[in-house]
């Protein structure tokens, strides 16, 4: 006991221990974030030789631009659509795979596999299938079902395509977590309910689903973040933000304006807004949603 006391009495040690982590966070997060905030108040040429302070002009320009509002709506709709479909499908599959069935480990492996595909490659795969000129699925849709598939011009189809591609990849990730969650649901509880005459549906909604809530909550956060930020490669490959600006989500716009169009001030202002958005989203989720979650 005495030794432990001595250890706790060391004042500097805890700081020393968190130091590496802090250094990493400062260098890779706080510093760039501060730079983004700083840059968002200026306009400058690509080479940084002229720097003009413009106050909040970059922000005001964004808010006055209807395209930015559209991008906001598209991003939200996209993130929600991906989250909803990826989570529902994954939960359904996990419940099915959790039963004692033949070849269940085979199913599980197959269902987890898509996660090993890089997001960029996933985008290319879906693009090839749905390419209006040479895609197999596009061809089948047109020949067999009479649906003219052209996500190059039809914005609804473009939105559908990126949602499906992004969800497909995320289903695998959600599946792993749901399956693990389901396996930790105590069997006696479910069996007792069954003896009491609860139907499978009731057992699921009343017992299994509430016990899964920590997993569901975690996945909700992860999926929204994925939908908002990590789907960049899919958008880039499949639609490049088109047709028009129909699938230009916020992160894609930040990249285009900053990296391709070299509008550093405007791009920085967008990043700051995104940063505030993420902070807000996280606070809301942990403050209000987490309270309803039973751990």
């Amino acid at each position: 006991m005495a030794k432990q006391y001595e250890f706790l009495n060391q004042r500097r040690l805890p700081y020393l221990l968190v130091l590496p982590q802090m250094v990493i966070v400062i260098i890779f997060f706080f510093w760039p974030a501060a730079q983004a905030v700083w840059q968002s108040f200026f306009i400058q040429d690509a080479f940084g030789s002229r720097l003009i302070f413009v106050g909040f002009e970059n922000y005001l320009k964004l808010f006055a631009d209807p395209a930015y509002g559209e991008s906001f709506v598209v991003s939200t709709a996209f993130a929600l659509a991906v989250t909803a479909s990826a989570m529902t499908i994954a939960l359904f599959l996990a419940v099915q795979a959790n039963r004692e069935i033949r070849l269940s480990s085979f199913y599980k492996t197959m269902l987890i596999w898509p996660y090993a595909v890089a997001t960029m490659v996933a985008g290319v795969l879906w693009l090839f299938m749905f390419n209006p000129n040479v895609g197999v699925v596009a061809w089948l849709l047109e020949k067999k079902l009479g649906i003219a598939w052209s996500h190059l011009l039809n914005s609804r189809q473009a939105f559908l395509l990126i949602t499906v591609a992004a969800s497909w990849k995320q289903v695998a990730y959600n599946f792993v977590f749901f399956l693990a969650g389901l396996q930790s649901v105590p069997a006696p509880l479910v069996e007792a309910a069954a003896i009491d005459g609860a139907s499978p549906l009731v057992r699921f909604w009343r017992i299994i689903f509430p016990l899964l809530s920590p997993t569901t909550f975690y996945l909700l956060v992860m999926n929204l973040v994925y939908g908002f930020f990590e789907t960049f490669p899919i958008i880039h490959q499949v639609t490049a933000g088109g047709p028009g600006k129909a699938t230009q989500i916020l992160v894609y716009k930040v990249w285009r304006d900053g990296v391709i169009n070299l509008d550093l001030g405007g791009s920085a202002a967008q990043s700051v807004i995104l940063m505030l958005l993420v902070i807000g989203l996280t606070v809301v989720q942990f403050r209000f949603i987490e309270r309803k979650v039973t751990y």
Partner: peptide, 21 residues
């Protein structure tokens, strides 16, 4: 200057024309 942005505007608007927007 900003030639990239100009081409992007042209591409986007052209798609909107073809889609009857």
């Amino acid at each position: 200057g900003n030639f990239n942005i100009i081409r992007e505007i042209e591409d986007q608007t052209w798609e909107d024309i073809l889609a009857d927007k």
